[in-house]
Computed example of a mutant assay.
Amino acid sequence: MGRPRAFDEDQAVHAAVKLFGSRAYDGVSVDDLVTHLGVHRNSLYKTFGSKRGLYLVALRRHRADDVGPLVDALGAATDAATALRLVTSADLGLLLLAAAERAPADEEVAAEVEAALAAVDRAIAGALGIPADLAVALTSAALGILLRGNPDGAGTALSQRLDPRA
């Protein structure tokens, strides 16, 4: 009979989301994971199979814990300015890094990224009553603002221009 697990899997996955979301997949070594997650190397491999296995679990957790609440909030948006502010203020670091770094080379990651972005697009289209292609454009603009690293500058200026009350 094996020893009981000496770590909290939920906490380890949460820490992995933060680590991968700040440094990307290729920027995180197995040694980094062992150090930051407080998990022994053997336990990491036994539980997740590989670094990639943990990455996929972390990406799915990110979708559930960060993208899911964003989608819910977007469902109540009443205008494009609100939708833009919601997206540019969300913690989407892992999603953006996954889209840029891993999705082009990994079909499973690409599917997770596509599902997350499609959910955001549908929420925006439904809440604002706009065509799907316009929702994709709004999502793309918001993510572009995040990628440029200036959500409070460009994002605020653009959301003010889009605000029907302004």
Rank of each mutant, 00 (worst) to 15 (best):
V113Y: 03
L37M: 04
S22T: 14
G153S: 09
A76D: 14
P69T: 12
A157N: 03
D133Q: 13
K51L: 09
G155D: 04
Y55P: 05
S22V: 09
A81E: 04
N150A: 14
T47A: 13
T47G: 04
I145S: 11
D32K: 08
A76F: 10
K18G: 03
L117P: 00
P151R: 01
Q11R: 15
R52K: 14
H62T: 06
G27I: 06
S43E: 14
F7D: 11
L134F: 07
L134V: 14
A73T: 04
A154Q: 13
L117G: 02
R23W: 13
A118C: 03
T47F: 05
A125P: 10
H62C: 09
P4G: 08
I145E: 12
A83L: 09
H62N: 12
A105G: 01
A115D: 14
S22Y: 03
V30I: 13
I124M: 14
A118F: 01
T78A: 15
V67G: 04
D32H: 11
H14Q: 06
A137K: 12
A125Y: 03
A90L: 02
D163M: 09
L74F: 08
F20P: 02
L134G: 04
A166G: 15
H40S: 12
D65F: 00
A77G: 07
R23L: 02
G155V: 07
V13G: 03
D66Q: 13
S22I: 00
A90R: 10
D8R: 10
V109K: 02
D32G: 09
A127G: 02
D32W: 08
L54R: 07
N150Y: 00
A90P: 06
A64C: 04
L74D: 07
A24Y: 07
L162N: 02
T78M: 09
R23M: 07
A24P: 03
Y55R: 05
H36V: 00
A80D: 03
S89K: 13
G27W: 08
G155W: 07
P69M: 10
A116I: 01
G93R: 11
D72M: 09
A137D: 15
A127C: 04
L70S: 07
D133G: 06
L95D: 11
R63I: 02
R165Y: 01
Q11K: 15
A64M: 06
R63V: 05
L19D: 05
R61L: 04
A132M: 13
E101F: 10
V71F: 07
V13F: 03
L74A: 11
F48R: 05
P104Q: 08
D72P: 00
S29R: 09
A135G: 12
D91T: 15
L74G: 11
